[in-house]
Amino acid sequence: MEKPLVSQARRSRGRVTEEEEPEMFGEDAIPCPPGAPRKAKVQHSTSSTSAPSCSQKEQFIELMQTQISLDHEAKKEHMERELAARLAFCKIQKRNDELRILTFDTTGMNPADAAKIEALKDAARAKYFNF
């Protein structure tokens, strides 16, 4: 006979019975505001969710192909701009190397070497300054 009482005590532990129920809010409690009624859950048919239709597959494939081609074009344009920038840098570097000859001082040099350097200076001036 004791076992049913023990099991009943375990079941009701932590629960509030009707006679023990405390009053949570007094007379000045604010009522809940009336709200919009809850929307019902949308029921989807199982056929449309389990497998996309052929037109959806085709649209997805077309979308992915378009995205891939756009990505390819963007990468190609980026590489072309980078190549053009590198070529411009190389041209500037080559020009600077060719113009560096103008800074050479030929005083006190062997006359044959000085003549060669002066010829290179004249060529650089003619090429870049139209003298």
Rank of each mutant, 00 (worst) to 15 (best):
F129K: 06
R86M: 06
A114K: 01
A9P: 01
D122N: 12
T66G: 01
M79T: 08
A51R: 08
M109Q: 05
A119S: 09
S12Q: 09
S7W: 14
P4W: 10
N110P: 01
A112I: 12
T106K: 00
E19R: 05
S50H: 07
P22F: 12
K94Q: 12
E73H: 01
C32D: 10
G26A: 12
N130R: 07
E80L: 10
D71P: 00
P111A: 04
A74K: 09
Q43E: 15
A88H: 06
F60I: 10
S12W: 03
K39S: 14
I92P: 08
R100N: 13
D97P: 01
K91Q: 14
A40P: 03
K41E: 15
Q93P: 00
G14C: 02
Q65D: 09
S45R: 07
A84W: 11
A40K: 13
F104N: 11
K127N: 07
N130Y: 04
N130L: 12
K76H: 05
F104A: 11
R11H: 11
Q43Y: 13
A124S: 13
K127M: 08
A40C: 11
D71L: 08
T106W: 04
R11Y: 13
P4F: 10
P4E: 12
I68Q: 01
R10T: 08
E18T: 10
L70H: 06
I61M: 03
A126C: 08
L70F: 04
R10H: 10
R15Y: 10
A126G: 03
S69G: 06
K94V: 15
H72T: 14
S55F: 05
F60M: 02
R125Q: 15
K121G: 00
A84E: 13
S48W: 09
K76L: 05
R10L: 14
N110E: 13
P22Y: 07
N96L: 14
M79W: 07
S47Q: 12
T107W: 02
E62F: 02
M109V: 12
V16H: 06
A85C: 13
A29H: 06
P52G: 03
P34G: 09
A74G: 04
D122V: 07
F104V: 15
G14W: 01
Q8G: 08
T107Y: 04
C90T: 14
T106Q: 09
P4C: 08
A115R: 06
E21G: 02
F60S: 05
E98K: 01
F89P: 00
G14S: 03
A84V: 09
Y128V: 09
R15I: 14
